[in-house]
Simulated scan of single mutants.
Amino acid sequence: MALIDGAHQLVKVPIVLVWDRLNTHVSRRMQQLITDREWLTVFLLPAYSPDLNPVEWVWAHVKHSPANLAVVALDRLEAFVRNRLKRLQYRPEILDGFIAGAGLTLKPSPR
């Protein structure tokens, strides 16, 4: 939750998370932490559903671009991935496509 709080402090906008059903994501403690943050909306995926997880689409997109990249140092690979993720930040239509492709909408469900 510290990472999510830090991201919220950085971007200063509401955050929407799509989570799998990892035990820490569905615990009572996590549910309380989510409830305490009005700016946070969480969607839980059905059990084992990688095709419904937009994050899988994002990583597939990011991993597709370095197919022929030869990296000589880990920090260069990290910079490359950060650059590709940053580019996606300014292309919301692509991110919307990943969400739509997974059959999801951004309409918040009642808490």
Results as ranks from 00 to 15, higher is better:
1 M>I: 08
2 A>F: 04
4 I>P: 00
6 G>L: 12
7 A>T: 10
8 H>I: 04
8 H>P: 00
9 Q>K: 14
10 L>G: 00
11 V>H: 05
12 K>S: 11
12 K>C: 08
12 K>F: 02
12 K>R: 13
12 K>Q: 15
14 P>F: 12
14 P>Q: 13
14 P>E: 11
15 I>R: 04
15 I>Q: 02
17 L>R: 14
18 V>Y: 00
19 W>Q: 05
19 W>E: 07
20 D>A: 10
20 D>E: 05
21 R>F: 03
21 R>N: 11
22 L>N: 09
23 N>V: 10
29 R>S: 09
30 M>C: 15
31 Q>F: 06
32 Q>D: 13
32 Q>R: 14
32 Q>T: 11
33 L>A: 15
33 L>Y: 02
33 L>P: 00
33 L>C: 10
33 L>D: 02
35 T>G: 03
35 T>Q: 09
36 D>M: 11
37 R>G: 06
38 E>R: 14
38 E>Y: 11
45 L>S: 09
47 A>C: 13
47 A>R: 14
47 A>K: 13
48 Y>W: 06
49 S>C: 15
49 S>K: 10
51 D>N: 13
51 D>L: 12
53 N>F: 03
53 N>C: 09
54 P>N: 07
55 V>I: 12
59 W>E: 09
61 H>W: 07
62 V>D: 01
63 K>A: 04
64 H>L: 13
64 H>D: 14
64 H>E: 14
66 P>Q: 11
67 A>H: 12
67 A>S: 11
67 A>G: 04
68 N>I: 11
68 N>F: 15
69 L>D: 12
70 A>I: 12
70 A>F: 10
74 L>M: 05
76 R>Q: 03
78 E>I: 05
81 V>P: 00
82 R>H: 09
82 R>P: 01
83 N>I: 03
85 L>V: 03
86 K>N: 12
87 R>L: 15
87 R>Q: 15
88 L>K: 01
88 L>D: 02
88 L>P: 01
94 I>G: 03
94 I>S: 05
98 F>K: 08
99 I>Q: 04
100 A>I: 15
102 A>V: 13
102 A>R: 02
103 G>N: 04
103 G>D: 06
104 L>G: 01
104 L>W: 00
105 T>H: 07
106 L>P: 02
109 S>C: 05
